[in-house]
Simulated scan of single mutants.
Amino acid sequence: MRRYVIPLVVLLAAGCGQVGRSPEKIAAADARKAAERAGDRVHDSRVRPARDVGHRAADLDGVEVMRVTGVSTAGDGVRLVLRTSGTAPDGGWFATSTITVRRCFEMRFSTTTEWQHYGTRQVACPSGGPLTFKPWPKAPEIPFERLRKALPRVPKGGGADEAKVRAAVASLRLDPAIRREFATEGDVVGVALIVRPYGSDAFDCVLARVAPGRTSVWTPPRMQRMAGEGGCSAGNAVDPLPPPH
């Protein structure tokens, strides 16, 4: 008799959370969790236009954006209706198949919305298909290798000439969206080529340091490229920040 006790306990433990709940309700709860995980990915304390909030949600796998209301995440914020799928075993402990349901959930995002507190509630799915969004604007690429080849080399004991460095950068015919900064300190000239991708918290930038005996070109770590960190500046090219810990 004892040999049947352990399997029975295991079965009871596995099924106790499902007692009284239909497979459809369990699948709907799974869909809600998927929507809330999507909310965690969309959540942001920055002010963003409503279309960008919807676009970010639409980029997530398994998430369809059915409705976007509001102007931006400032003030009253933006409300999204997301459609997600959930699955559950169909038939109890010994189920050999699963059911899948699709449900819609309304969620609110604003600059004051707390993490994982989106006021999620299930709503009727709007009629029609999910919303579509245009591709994100592309930022111009900074020509790292072309810059490295174009910059002058200064022999040891000499001094870098900012005018020559500026002329080398001008020869690249950079996209106007790429900002250029120059700084001179002693015999060293620093260069920063900077662009901020649309909607990004970090800049794209390439730094160059033209000094006697060595010309260096590099991209700072992402942490230093965040707004306010000063990593994407000609000053950082002249006197580089230490690597982040």
Rank of each mutant, 00 (worst) to 15 (best):
C205E: 02
D76P: 10
R108L: 07
H55Y: 09
A14M: 15
R46I: 10
I99C: 07
T87P: 04
A183M: 12
Q116A: 07
A35C: 08
R32M: 06
G54N: 14
C205M: 04
P176R: 05
S171K: 15
G15L: 10
V78Y: 03
G159A: 15
D76A: 13
K164D: 15
A27W: 10
R41N: 14
A57L: 13
W115A: 01
G20C: 11
P49V: 15
D61A: 11
G231K: 01
K149S: 10
F182K: 07
F203Y: 06
A57P: 10
T98S: 15
M223T: 07
T215L: 06
H117V: 00
V189D: 11
K25M: 08
M1L: 10
V81N: 05
V165R: 05
V154P: 00
R146F: 04
E162K: 12
T113P: 02
R21P: 06
P240I: 04
E141D: 12
G129P: 09
E229N: 09
A14W: 03
R108Y: 00
R173G: 11
R102V: 05
G119S: 09
D59V: 14
E36S: 04
D187K: 13
W115C: 00
A13T: 14
V9N: 06
T112W: 01
A35Y: 09
S171E: 11
D30H: 14
